[in-house]
Each structure stands twice: as C-alpha cells, then as structure tokens.
C-alpha cells in the first residue's frame, strides 16, 4: 500500500521536471524547483515509515530550510537586485 503511494509521489516529481525543462520563462522554472523541494520532504516522510529509520525526518527538516533559502535567493535575483545587497 505505502509502496504504491511512494511510487506515485516520485512520479509527481516528473511533473515538476517537465515544468523545469519546458517552462517558457525563468519564473516558471523557479516555481518548479520550489515545488520539487516540498515534494522531496513528502518522499522522506513516507520512506521513514517504510524503512522504520528515524533520521529520514531530520533530513526532511534540513531539506525544508535549505529549499527555503534557495527559493529566497533566486527570487531576489529575479527581482533585479544584485545578490550582495
């Protein structure tokens, strides 16, 4: 049961990859990257139940924070400022 859900969640990442590759503008690609980061947290949570390992939740928390910082940096670059302002 949970394995099928895990495969569905991994297949959803392919949707994000489609948007990252085909996106007509830069902003579309960045939306794809942001959503990809959130989906990986879901994959970590399902794997933590399947394999009964606890450290996968820690990886999920770290992934949330890193994806957040990456999104903010790219958004600041997009809005026309230099990165050292």
């Amino acid at each position: 049961m949970l394995e099928i859900l895990l495969y569905i969640q991994i297949a959803l990442c392919a949707f994000c990859l489609y948007r990252i590759i085909r996106g007509p503008t830069v902003a579309d690609r960045m939306v794809g990257i942001d959503i990809f980061g959130i989906l990986v947290v879901g994959i970590c949570a399902i794997l933590a139940i399947l394999t009964d390992r606890m450290f996968l939740i820690d990886i999920g928390i770290a992934w949330i924070i890193l994806s957040f910082i990456g999104t903010l940096t790219l958004a600041k670059y997009l809005s026309g400022k230099k990165l050292n302002e």
Partner: peptide
C-alpha cells in the same frame, strides 16, 4: 509549522520577484 511558514514566504517572494522581472 516550519513547512507552512517557509512555503508561504517563498510563494510571496516568488510572486513579487516575477512581477518585478
């Protein structure tokens, strides 16, 4: 709550950035 706040702030930054671009 960590995911909640980071997702909302990220969406806000992306929307404003893409309008400014």
């Amino acid at each position: 709550p960590l995911l909640f706040f980071s997702a909302t702030v990220g969406a806000h930054a992306l929307v404003k950035g893409s309008y400014k671009a």
